[in-house]
Deep mutational scan, measured.
Amino acid sequence: KVILLEDVKGLGKKGDVVEVKDGYARNFLIPQGLAVEATKGNLKEL
């Protein structure tokens, strides 16, 4: 699961917690600054 930092077409809006494949999160969303891993600490910051 990841928390979206920006609106991502076809996935969700900023602040949404979405389930995506590990590779998509690690190789695209997180490096592009579009999402962060949905850890307990990150979820509390919402």
Rank of each mutant, 00 (worst) to 15 (best):
V2A: 02
V2G: 01
V2D: 00
V2K: 01
I3F: 10
L4A: 00
L4N: 00
L4G: 00
L5V: 08
L5W: 03
E6W: 14
E6G: 10
D7P: 08
V8Y: 05
V8M: 09
V8A: 02
K9I: 12
K9C: 09
K9A: 13
K9T: 12
G10L: 07
G10N: 12
G10E: 07
L11G: 01
L11R: 02
L11Y: 11
L11A: 02
G12V: 00
G12L: 00
K13G: 07
K13L: 12
K13N: 09
K13Q: 11
K13S: 09
K14F: 04
K14N: 03
K14P: 03
G15R: 04
G15H: 09
G15A: 03
G15D: 05
D16I: 04
D16S: 10
D16A: 10
D16T: 13
V17W: 06
V17P: 02
V18N: 01
V18T: 03
V18Y: 03
V18G: 00
E19F: 14
V20F: 03
V20E: 02
V20T: 07
K21T: 13
K21S: 14
K21E: 13
K21F: 14
K21D: 11
D22Q: 12
D22G: 10
D22A: 14
G23P: 12
G23R: 11
G23C: 13
G23S: 12
Y24A: 03
Y24M: 06
R26S: 08
R26K: 08
R26T: 08
R26I: 08
N27S: 12
N27Y: 15
N27C: 14
F28W: 11
F28A: 03
F28I: 06
F28E: 04
F28L: 05
I30Q: 02
P31Q: 14
P31W: 15
Q32P: 02
Q32F: 13
Q32T: 10
Q32R: 14
Q32L: 12
G33D: 03
G33R: 10
G33N: 09
L34A: 04
A35T: 01
A35M: 01
V36C: 09
V36H: 04
V36W: 05
V36E: 07
E37P: 10
E37H: 10
E37I: 13
E37K: 09
K40L: 15
K40V: 15
K40R: 07
K40Y: 15
K40E: 15
K40H: 13
G41S: 13
G41W: 03
G41F: 04
G41T: 14
N42F: 05
L43I: 09
L43T: 06
L43E: 12
K44E: 15
E45I: 06
E45L: 06
E45W: 08
E45H: 10
L46W: 04
L46R: 13
